[in-house]
Amino acid sequence: MAKALSRDPYKNFRFKVYFDSDEEKSLVAYVNNVSGLSWSVDVVSYGEGGNYQSQRKVPGQISYEPVTLSRGITADNKFKDWAEAVWNYSNNNQLKGLRKRLIIALCDEKGEIAVKYTLEKCWVSGYNTLPELSADDNAIAIEEITVEHEGWTHEVLGTSAEEGARKRPA
């Protein structure tokens, strides 16, 4: 009997974020929010000889929107260390640690990586190390980094959100 494959979408709360590789030692702890990936294409208009009533349009340069990662403030310094690499570049002209590969992995119901987005040539363009504090609030203190990148690849590793979890009726 063939395996029945579910077409259910992956859950958006089952994800992991890695710096440089998808090995467990590169896992970034406690990331609780990742802004979406998006891009847009500039539209280039030009006039065509003999056609004075309308313009032709062709695709131009692609712009990739920055990605924001948020997490509760912890003793882990991965956000701070990466953000400081930009500061070191600005002040000392040192490129070491400035650019990283960022991997965002969606996980299936078993916790295994099913879909992986690999962002290339990433660097931190914004760092919010301390949110507004209030003694009247009991929320978690959140730190954020905003990451610029030069595109991504998309790799599907799983065949569905729940492989073989359901049987089809006869």
Rank of each mutant, 00 (worst) to 15 (best):
L130V: 13
A85E: 01
E120M: 11
E65V: 05
G49N: 10
Y52H: 12
S70G: 06
T129S: 14
A83R: 13
Y89P: 02
S45Q: 12
E144K: 15
I103W: 05
D76I: 03
Y52D: 10
E112F: 10
A141I: 03
L133N: 04
D42S: 14
A135R: 01
V43K: 15
G126W: 07
N91M: 14
Y64I: 04
W82T: 05
K116H: 01
I104A: 06
K100A: 02
K121Y: 11
Y127T: 04
K78E: 08
N51K: 15
C122D: 02
A83G: 00
N92Y: 11
A85P: 03
G72N: 10
K57M: 09
N92P: 00
A135T: 10
G47D: 11
D42M: 05
P59N: 12
V115R: 14
Y127F: 15
L95R: 13
T146P: 00
Y89L: 15
E84K: 15
C122P: 01
Y127Q: 06
P59Y: 03
V115T: 11
Y52L: 11
S63N: 13
D76P: 03
I73Y: 05
P59Q: 07
C107F: 10
D136Y: 04
Y127M: 09
T129D: 14
I140H: 02
V41S: 09
V115Q: 09
L133C: 04
G49S: 11
P131W: 04
I103N: 05
T118S: 14
W87Y: 05
N91E: 14
I145Y: 07
T118A: 12
V86Q: 02
G50F: 10
G49K: 08
P131F: 03
G49E: 11
W123R: 04
K78M: 04
Q94S: 14
E48T: 14
K78W: 01
E109P: 00
T74Y: 01
E48R: 15
G50W: 09
V67W: 06
I113R: 14
L106Y: 12
F79Q: 07
T129A: 15
G72I: 08
I73Q: 05
Q94M: 05
N92I: 02
G72P: 09
V44T: 07
Q94C: 01
